[in-house]
Computed example of a mutant assay.
Amino acid sequence: MIYAVAGASGQLGQLVLPELVAQVGAANVVALVRNPAKLADLAATGVTVRAFDYDAADPAALAGVDRLLLISANEVGKRSAQHQAVIDAAKAAGVGLIAYTSILHAPTSTIGLAGEHRDTEAALAASGVPHILLRNGWYNENYTGSLAPSIEHGAIIGAAGEGRISSASRADLAAGAVAALVSGAAGDVYELAGDESYTMAEFAGHVARIAGKPVAYVNMTQAEYAAALKGVGLPDWLADMLANSSYATSHDQLFDDSRSLSRLVGRPTTPIAVTIAVALA
């Protein structure tokens, strides 16, 4: 059985690859990446590294692949077309199964980013290629990348209200992707989120405790939050996207208590406080 990972050099892909190699062996793994030079070290271990571009997906790069992990692209606004190209290439190459990293509760999600994921889920259904849907919640790391200024100013801002967030670490979701890719069956749908949930006020409390400094959560309207993000230099499209996601959180769009991820990987997910501690270490 040959397993391929598309988007192998990204942040999630780089965590998926060693986990996959550990389970199935390097000789059975194909890493698909726009620039193969990025994974030269991996190629030296026996993993096959092939050039692959979501914008011009070549079926030849998928020759011999039995199961493909399609990690969603990161170019917002282009992803529906990019994912369609990969699905078409996989079908042409005779790939037996595609596992796709979608978004939590994709069919009903009000998060703006969910639209392209719904498009991709529909494309998979229309393709006739057997597939698995990995509906990922947010990464813990989404919330810990900019803690320094928050601690400096004593405030974390957002529009999430009292909404609860069931995030998991990127490593947790990488492990889930590998487990589903190796052992899952066509038609499986996984809502993948952390075991624990928290509000942004509770998140700020964890940060304050671990940093040893006062930090509070300041809630804003969606428009106020978008304006604040633009005020610190974020591009308009990115600020609007983040504000939309934060506001959707206030309606529990990132909450899930199914514990499907921990069952899939056979261990508890990483608590947000652990990820905060690692980020501040």
Rank of each mutant, 00 (worst) to 15 (best):
I210Y: 06
G13N: 04
L242C: 07
T45W: 00
K78H: 15
A27N: 14
V189H: 04
R164V: 05
F52Y: 13
G145Q: 14
I111C: 12
Q23H: 09
A180P: 02
G266N: 09
K38D: 14
A174L: 11
I165P: 07
N219G: 15
V278C: 03
N28M: 02
T45C: 05
V29C: 01
Y247W: 09
G158M: 08
D88A: 15
E75P: 10
A227L: 07
L181I: 01
Y198E: 12
E75M: 15
T45K: 11
E19Q: 14
A60D: 14
A168E: 04
T48F: 00
M200W: 10
H153D: 13
S183C: 02
D55W: 03
S260D: 09
G212L: 10
A126E: 03
G96S: 13
T249S: 15
Y139S: 08
A159I: 05
E162L: 12
Q84K: 15
A279E: 05
Y217F: 15
L134Q: 13
V95Y: 06
I210K: 11
W237T: 11
V95C: 13
F255I: 01
G163C: 06
L192T: 05
M1Y: 06
I71N: 13
T269V: 10
V16K: 04
T110K: 13
L238P: 01
L264R: 09
A227C: 01
A180K: 12
G94T: 12
E121K: 05
A204E: 02
K230C: 09
F52S: 11
E191G: 01
A171H: 09
S262Y: 05
D53Q: 11
A90I: 03
Y217N: 07
S262W: 04
S183A: 14
A37F: 09
A159C: 06
A31Q: 11
V207M: 12
G176Q: 03
V21G: 11
L42W: 00
E152V: 04
S260Y: 02
V5L: 02
R267Q: 08
A185T: 13
A171V: 10
A90Y: 12
A4H: 02
I132A: 02
E116S: 13
F203T: 03
I87R: 14
A92M: 06
E75A: 15
R164I: 04
V5N: 08
S167Y: 06
L32I: 00
L242D: 05
D188G: 01
T269W: 01
H206S: 15
A216W: 00
A168M: 07
P214R: 07
A227H: 05
R164L: 08
V16A: 12
I165E: 12
D256K: 04
R263H: 07
R34T: 08
I157G: 08
R135V: 02
A228G: 05
K38P: 11
I71L: 15
M220G: 02
L254T: 12
A185L: 10
L229F: 06
V215S: 03
G94S: 01
G115C: 01
A85H: 15
A56C: 02
S197M: 00
S250T: 10
Y100G: 00
D53N: 15
